[in-house]
């Protein structure tokens, strides 16, 4: 009865019976949303999880999950982790630096608006077009390729490393840095001037303020943002797919192979296991992210 009381109060002069009916009625309004999410998000996810533990015959089996430990998927996972870690690190450090350069400009300045808009495009639009932008820069007859070939006599056919892990790290940084700016800027903006002034008043030098106040305050937000970048890179597909058309050096591209050729490692539906692996990694990282975010929002909110 205590639970229905607020609802009964919302409907004036209702008898108790009506109050009880109301507590179920409004929930029905959520049905379309829940059904839609159920069909297009939950069912596919459950399909992946169940499929990963199913044998070809349909019974329970650890065969596919165990196959994740074989050399090809393991190497792809390792490369994926290296790529995600490196691009998250580069993105977090440089992105935080850029965010600081921006936050020291007044909020209405053109610089600030331009940088946040550009970062919004590069971080969220992403994918294929960014890959092509770098191919046009460093690929065959690219702008920088030609320029460097003319000046330094480097290989005029372009940089083959662009299509391998170092290239992926470079191109990923191109959307990781802007993403960092977007997610880290609010934390920097939350740094109150009073804290600096209070520290200075109590005798802190600029260096002491940064080491003892600003860095400890920003640390959780920085780590949280870096984790978000990591998950973003790990789940990214389009850029790598556009850049690397053959072979599968990283997990997302191995999933592509599993989907398009149906049989990888002699296993039909191995894609389910790989997708499960991806869910697990991203879920762990996002869980940590949410935990850190809760902590900073208390400080910098």
């Amino acid at each position: 009865m205590t639970i229905t009381a607020p609802l009964a109060a919302a409907a004036p002069d209702s008898d108790p019976g009506r109050g009880r009916r109301l507590s179920v009625g409004p929930s029905l309004g959520l049905l379309p949303f829940l059904v839609f999410i159920g069909i297009f998000l939950v069912i596919p996810t459950v399909t992946v999880i169940v499929g990963a533990f199913q044998s070809e015959a349909g019974g329970f089996s650890l065969e596919k999950v165990r196959a994740l430990g074989e050399e090809t998927p393991l190497r792809a996972l390792r490369e994926s982790l290296v790529l995600s870690f490196t691009s998250a690190l580069v993105g977090a450090v440089l992105g935080a630096l850029l965010a600081y350069l921006v936050v020291t400009a007044p909020p209405t300045s053109i610089l600030r608006r331009a940088v946040t808009s550009i970062c919004g495009v590069l971080a969220q639009f992403g994918g294929v077009t960014l890959a092509f932008a770098w191919i046009a820069t460093l690929g065959f007859s690219g702008l920088l390729t030609d320029l460097m070939a003319d000046t330094f006599g480097t290989d005029p056919n372009g940089s083959s490393w662009l299509y391998e892990l170092p290239g992926l790290i470079l191109v990923y940084s191109y959307f990781q840095i802007p993403l960092m700016v977007i997610v880290f800027l609010p934390a920097l903006e939350g740094l109150r001037p009073q804290w600096r002034e209070a520290a200075v008043n109590l005798g802190a030098t600029t260096r002491q303020y940064w080491l003892q106040v600003a860095f400890p305050l920003l640390r959780p937000a920085f780590l949280g943002s870096a984790l978000l970048l990591f998950a973003n890179a790990f789940a990214a597909y389009a850029t790598a797919a556009a850049l690397v058309s053959q072979g599968a050096p990283i997990t997302p591209l191995l999933i592509r192979s599993a989907l398009t050729s149906e049989i990888v490692l002699g296993q039909a539906n191995f894609g389910f296991a790989l997708a499960l692996e991806m869910i697990v990694v991203v879920a762990i990282v996002m869980g940590l992210y949410a935990w850190l975010l809760r902590r900073t929002s208390r400080w910098l909110g």
Partner: peptide, 19 residues
């Protein structure tokens, strides 16, 4: 400079270090 003046200041609000 401010950090050598030995002034104790109380601000309007929110000046405690939250960490």
């Amino acid at each position: 400079p401010a950090n050598k003046r030995d002034m104790g200041m109380v601000f309007q609000a929110y000046s405690l270090f939250p960490h």
